[in-house]
């Protein structure tokens, strides 16, 4: 039982970084949702802010790492100009060519919007810190961008998983 180098990097890109992104999002969203004066004490805010800063910063860093490994490490193997590359295999059949022409072409572009949004969220959280609990407008804005970053990454991630199932990189 062993993995090829390509399979290993596919796992790092999709499962490792993707999984970490999901965990960071879940933690960050819970922290943002509960960051309301009626829900936390002064001491609770300090503890929660540390987690929130860590969660949003991790999410931004992981989002950048995911798109960089995806584009510069895994994607070249996907698009190799060889008959058995995943791209060639998908385009060879009318039944599967939409997985490339719609799925992959959308995924490879939209994914890059997620780290920009996640970075904006991290900057907002680091900048406002404790003020986020008083400034509910900013908290709602941060939450909205945070969810948008996740939704964007989710579209790319789900398409990536489905494409890998149809035509794995081996």
């Amino acid at each position: 039982m062993e993995l090829t180098t390509r399979e290993f990097w596919g796992l790092v890109h999709g499962l490792g970084l993707g999984g970490l992104f999901l965990v960071a999002f879940a933690g960050g969203l819970a922290g943002l949702y509960s960051l309301r004066p009626e829900l936390v004490t002064e001491a609770g805010v300090a503890e929660r802010m540390r987690r929130l800063v860590a969660g949003t910063t991790t999410m931004a860093a992981v989002a950048w790492a995911t798109v960089i490994t995806g584009t510069w490490v895994v994607y070249p193997w996907y698009r190799e100009d060889e008959p058995n590359s995943p791209r060639s295999a998908l385009l060879a059949s009318e039944d599967t060519k939409d997985w490339h022409e719609f799925g992959m072409e959308w995924k490879e572009h939209i994914a890059w919007i997620a780290p920009m949004l996640a970075t904006a969220v991290a900057v907002m959280v680091i900048y406002y810190r404790h003020d986020l609990i008083r400034n509910q407008t900013a908290r709602r804005l941060v939450t909205g961008l945070f969810v948008a970053a996740f939704a964007t990454a989710a579209i790319a991630g789900i398409l990536g998983a489905l494409i890998t199932k149809k035509a794995p990189i081996t």
Partner: peptide, 27 residues
């Protein structure tokens, strides 16, 4: 209203949000 809500200027926040939009638009 913004000034009342927080002591920190909101400019840097607007900068982060709009920059993400500009990055997406350029892409």
């Amino acid at each position: 209203a913004d000034v009342d809500l927080t002591s920190k200027p909101s400019g840097p926040i607007a900068a982060a949000m709009i920059a993400a939009g500009i990055g997406a638009l350029v892409l």
